[in-house]
Amino acid sequence: MMMTNLTIPPHNDVQLHKAAQRLRWFLAAYEHQIHTTEEETGNRYRTDEKKLTRVFADWLKDFEAQKPEDPRDNTAYVGFAAGLMLRALLRHQPSVSEGLPNQADMSNPAHFWPEGYLYVAFCLNVRGLVLQSDYHEEQNLSDLMTEIRTWWSFRENAQEDPSRAIGFLDLFAGDEPEWAFPQIFRVKLARSGKGRSPKPIGPGKSGAAPSQVPDDGGH
């Protein structure tokens, strides 16, 4: 199973990462993603726009709160912001699956968890597009994206604590996840060795993976 590329709405002369911070672009891009995912998987979705706006508002608040001052951290922040978006989508659940295709294959993540798959596809697609368009970097998805055991773990962990979804999105995107404090950007930055903050954050525990993540999950 491959994740289809998202056709993005126009963003005029604005850089994509700036356009993605606008509600009008966000709603249009999400709508594109629903059509794309429905065509790709045969799933059908119903979406509540009020909840989707709430997702955007919550994400914006989280996004602004941790925005790095040093522009050298912007690329890393794109990935983190995508994780924050996934967390907001899982918290508010704006989309509901209204049906699977005939003979749906439950070992396919898109059919196993249709809503989760839609949210992940959206976040990864926007992440990849922003990295490519504004930072000339390629996103290389992990094979774990199609691994059903990872999705079992992802769903269970995300239902327990949506912040853990941030680590799983990194995992799917082929990045090193931060499991202990996935919701704090500076911790992730420090662990990746790129941290420019002189202050250590957190109690310094090793970042243990959440329960049931496959052993090879962290690469």
Partner: peptide, 16 residues
């Protein structure tokens, strides 16, 4: 449509 979006967005973050 933009006006509708503005109302939804303002409602969502009015508490702030």
């Amino acid at each position: 449509r933009l006006l509708d979006m503005s109302l939804s967005l303002t409602q969502a973050i009015w508490d702030d």
